[in-house]
Design a protein around this nucleic acid. Structure first.
Lengths: 78, 78
DNA sequence: TTGTAGACTTCAGTCGACT
DNA sequence: AAGTCGACTGAAGTCTACA
């Protein structure tokens, strides 16, 4: 599984768990809604800056966010 | 402190601790030496893909790499 | 509320050469 | 062994609009 796919899945799970719409998350992270959509679908890969902004908006450390991404990759291997 | 600066510092510390040159790390991560240099100096920001490749080359999880980046940010705050 | 599409701008990442 | 510079290409991220 590609990293971008895993990132998208983790991002969506986190967003939903916080009860946010793509629009709301985009507002918090200062990113466009359409771009959040692309990220969740694994169509685009975030830069370090974007990962940082999303982590803050989702109220967790970048390391925790990437840990969840790693878990998605693990799951897909089984 | 900017995220890219913190990333550069963490990256350099890790590379040195592994006893690698920029050239060698670049070979392992499939990235050019000049780009590794730019990253370590905080002049450019890596994409998720690049973070992934560097983590593998440095033999640690992405989450651990970003944890070290967070530590650099913390240190700079004190 | 989310996906998609096209056109656009900015910057990640390459390449070659020199210090 | 590492920094820098200029020119380049592809992809990150924006914007508008519609299903």
């Amino acid at each position: 599984m590609e990293v971008s796919k895993a990132f998208g899945i983790a991002l969506r799970k986190l967003r939903i768990s916080k009860g946010l719409t793509q629009e709301q998350l985009g507002f918090e992270a200062d990113l466009r809604r359409t771009f959040i959509s692309s990220l969740e679908l694994g169509e685009k890969k975030p830069s370090l800056e974007t990962i940082y902004q999303l982590a803050i908006a989702l109220d967790l450390p970048m390391s925790r966010l990437l840990k969840l991404v790693e878990k998605e990759i693990e799951i897909s291997k089984k």
